[in-house]
Simulated assay, not measured.
Amino acid sequence: MSFEGSTLVDWPAFSQARAELGAGFVRILGYFREDGVKSVALIEAAMRSLNAAAMVIPAHTLKGEARQFGAEPLADLAEAIETIARDCLEMQDTPEEALEHIVNLRPLFDQTLTLLEREANPIIARKPAAGGFGRRAVPTGFGED
């Protein structure tokens, strides 16, 4: 599963969350990172043990936190896993149906988190590549020394 950066995050929702959270935004994004890493690991472990009940809470948590930052594809994927797990509990079944979703979860979480953190700290992510004020541009061809 691969997404373009522009489709991984609803940037207006991200901006709204940033404005509403104010000075606590970066701290709360850090909690999202910590909770997300734990949730993904718990979901993967639950899949390995075919334990649908153990998938529900981490998938639900990841879904809610992802939506808070406008990470809709991640939230939708977590919601699909949660729904499958809940259905399996009702039907007293194992969650093999969730396998494809869970395989895609970690890469999507990592891609999304990278974008969110890059946007949250634009100074680090947007350094000029070459040239710019106070930097000598690297010659790229004949006669450009």
Rank of each mutant, 00 (worst) to 15 (best):
A75I: 07
P58F: 02
P73W: 13
P73F: 10
I102F: 01
D76W: 05
E144F: 03
D110P: 04
A129Q: 07
G30P: 01
F25V: 13
T83I: 13
I124W: 06
S6I: 15
M47G: 00
L113A: 10
R18W: 07
A137I: 06
E90K: 12
A85Y: 07
A54Q: 08
A75T: 03
L21C: 04
D93C: 07
D93L: 10
L42P: 01
G36P: 06
N121Y: 04
A59P: 08
E96T: 07
R136T: 07
N121P: 00
L116G: 02
G70I: 08
R86V: 15
E44K: 01
D87I: 06
E34W: 01
A78S: 15
E144H: 05
L108D: 06
R27F: 02
M1Q: 13
P122T: 09
L99V: 06
A66I: 05
A125D: 05
I57L: 12
D93W: 08
G36K: 04
S6T: 15
A80R: 15
G36D: 09
I28N: 01
A45P: 00
T112Q: 06
P122C: 08
L29V: 06
L115C: 14
S15W: 09
I81S: 05
E119S: 07
E34L: 11
A71L: 11
T94N: 01
M55C: 02
G143H: 09
P128I: 07
L113D: 11
D76T: 13
Q111W: 03
T114H: 09
R86P: 04
F25M: 06
F69K: 02
L77R: 14
V103M: 04
T112R: 03
L105P: 05
S2A: 14
K63F: 05
E44V: 00
F32L: 13
D145W: 10
E20Q: 15
D87M: 10
C88K: 07
A41Y: 00
Q16I: 08
V26H: 12
E44F: 00
F69V: 03
P107L: 05
I102L: 01
G36R: 07
R86Q: 15
S39R: 03
F32P: 05
H101K: 11
F14N: 10
K63R: 15
D145K: 02
D35V: 07
V138I: 14
G64S: 15
P122H: 10
L99C: 06
S2K: 14
R27L: 13
A54D: 02
P122M: 11
D110Y: 00
I43Y: 03
E117L: 03
R48C: 00
H60R: 08
A19K: 09
A23N: 13
L113T: 14
L62H: 03
E100A: 14
R118H: 09
T114N: 11
M1H: 13
V56T: 07
G141P: 08
L21N: 10
